[in-house]
Amino acid sequence: MERYLNTPIKEIITSFPEVGKILEEYSIGCVPCTLGSCLLKDIVAIHNLAEDKELELMYRIEKTIYPERDIKKPVFKASKKEPDKEIRYSPPMKRLVDEHTLIKKWIGRIPQVIENVDIESESGSQLILDGLDFIRFYADKFHHAKEEDILFDYTDKNLDIIRTILADHEAARGHVKEMLKAIGEKDTNAIIGHLCAYKDLLTEHIKKEDEILYPWIDRGLSTTQVGELFAKFNEAEEKMDKGVIEKCQKFIAEAEQRIENFHRS
């Protein structure tokens, strides 16, 4: 069906005249159009039918194109279209939100890691060290630096909200420092304490940024500023060591397996 969604309507109607008749029933009059170059998906989207009507229409078109297929008839709930609650970010802001997603993946694993810290074993201490590297290079150098050196220039740094955010970054750096020290001293309790505190701090911090700070900054940005910000992020990333960033992304991809192996051993 995907293929037909991206096919000009004239082609579809030529092959399946029945589709033209169905569209007419929904007041979508593509049959007499001499061009017919609009894609099926655009036509359906732009007519903005009620949700159940759209489902019904798509079901009927699919059934016409693939009569042999066993297509499930959609259940039509008489529900009104929910208002769009999803936050829309500008492209530079979206990039920061995507970086949060990766950071949250590591934060989500911390409880499992804490459960079984074994700083004496080679693999146990390596897992903690690699996790710490992810925090230092990805969450801090790569991500927080973009916020501090670029994004916050578009705000008043004396505002409470920015001060709070900056204080969070500092607190996070404090935990990293303490963790490094604790690893050196093989102090398991201190490692657990700071890892836990980091998790709680960043969970709240990211929520604040995603839900309040970023949408607020976004609302104040002009189109020109959005473009500038996007270009500055690109420039900053080009200056960074790509190998280190890739290593961080790889760490997250492999973390689950490593934690599991660790549990088993």
Binding site: L35, S37, C38, L39, D42, I43, I46, H47, T223, T224, V226, G227, E228, F230, A231
Partner: peptide, 19 residues
């Protein structure tokens, strides 16, 4: 260019410009 803003009419065929 810094940014691109594509302004179109609501009619379906206009979506081609965004595409």
């Amino acid at each position: 260019i810094n940014t691109l803003t594509v302004m179109i009419m609501q009619v379906p065929c206009c979506g081609g410009l965004v595409a």
